[in-house]
Design a protein around this nucleic acid. Sequence first.
DNA 1: GAGCTATGTAGAC
DNA 2: TCTACCTAGCTCT
Length: 292
Amino acid sequence: MPEGHTLHRLAGTLQRAFGGDAVAASSPQGRFASGAALLDGATLERAEAWGKHLFLDLDDHVLHVHLGLYGTWPVEKAPAPAPVGAVRLRLESPRSFADLRGPTACDLVGESGREQILARLGPDPIRPDSDPERFVARVRSSRALVGGMLMDQSVIAGVGNIYRAEVLFRHRISPYAEGRQVSVAKLRAVWDDLVVLMHDGVRRGRIVTVDPADVEALAALDVDRPSSDDPELDGDDDSLAMRRRRRSTGAYVYGRTGRPCLRCGTKVRMAELQGRRVYWCGTCQRVPRTRT
DNA sequence: GAGCTATGTAGAC
DNA sequence: TCTACCTAGCTCT
């Protein structure tokens, strides 16, 4: 589930599992065979994330990994069994092994390659060395839609579709507002909120954006309340209807199309914005009127 | 078990 | 703008 928090958490896990160890590297799938051969026997000196990008320093090599939409890299205790599925890269030490599957990117990029990638990334709310004013200035100077800018990794690194939808809701900002329409104060508040939410995501290993005080009320909204003659009410607790009635996304708006907004009761809306689905409350998150 | 969808990006066209 | 990547969770049969 790779938004930025996933990669930061993974960097820490890899560091703890392999840091200081010489690792055996292989590419059971074969698509990274030459790279794995170069890495085989190298020592993992550092694992670090910037936004959704992961960099591993192994001796003089810099390994760049991007998990994309469905890449996974679980770290498990040794001994490693025979590889299952399309394993692009296996790292193995006496203590641990990790099978990388389905990444968008897995390359040896060198120091210059790393610098090139970092140069096109915006500040990352999870990194303490990030400058929030870069984010604020970039959004404020643009007529582009803020919903799109939050997904633009050169504007802010590590935010994905869930954090985008949720943080805009939390600050009552329409994804269809132009960047220049959002106040500096609101953008700073968005940044500060993302710092808290995404650090929390690293710690928990999952995205939690609903405040504790809202959890119960939101879960109650996500319980379907069909009329008593609804045929779906028939059946025992394991029926489809019961499973449907228990369903809750644990988000204010993401994935809640057609369900009531916690604040105002208006149905949450969904639309395609620059190729990705965006969710918002059309009442709480209105587009500001532009003076002409 | 089949089919669908997804927290994303790079590269081809 | 379209497609590849080819995982994993969920829904439906």
